[in-house]
Amino acid sequence: MQLTGSHVLNAPVSKIWGMLMDADTLAQVVPAVSRLEKTGDNEFKAIAEVKIGPVSGSFSGDLSLADIRENEGYTLHVKQNSKIGNADASVAISLKPITDSQTEVSFDGNARLSGLLARTGQRVISGVANTLTRQFFDNLEQAINENP
C-alpha cells in the first residue's frame, strides 16, 4: 500500500515539529492509532483500530521514530500484528517552510500487509490509503487549531 501526500498547514515549522515529536499529539494525528505508550527513546507501543474493506481489527505493535532531523522530518516505522494479519509500514515525513506561518507537510512511504488483511483488502486499498492520508492532515489541522 503506497502512502504519499502533502498538504500546506497554517502553522510555523517549529510548532508542527513540536507536535510531531509529542507522543500524545502523535497518537491523535496518526490515523487509527488510539494510544501510544512510551517504551524507550522515540519508541512506543501503539494500540490501533483498523478497518480495511470487510476486515477490521485491533492492532497492537511498535511505533518508532528514526532518522530524526529537527524541524525537517523523520521516518516513522510502524510494525503491528493482529489476528487479521500484520502490517509493516515505513513512512518518511518531511516539513518544509512556505512562509513564517505556513508549512508544507509531506510524507512518502509504503505499508506491507500480510495475512487476512492482504487477502481481502486489496480491492479497497487505494481508497483506504486516500482516506488515511486525508485523516492524517485533518487530524493535524485540528490539533493545530486546538493548540493555538
Binding site: 474493506g53 470487510p54 506491507r112 500487509l113 500480510s114 495475512g115 492482504a118 487477502r119 481481502t120 486489496q122 480491492r123
Partner: peptide, 13 residues
Amino acid sequence: DENAQLTNGSYMD
C-alpha cells in the same frame, strides 16, 4: 502481490 501474498482470497475478491 510482490510478497507472494494471495490478495483475492475471499468471495468478495
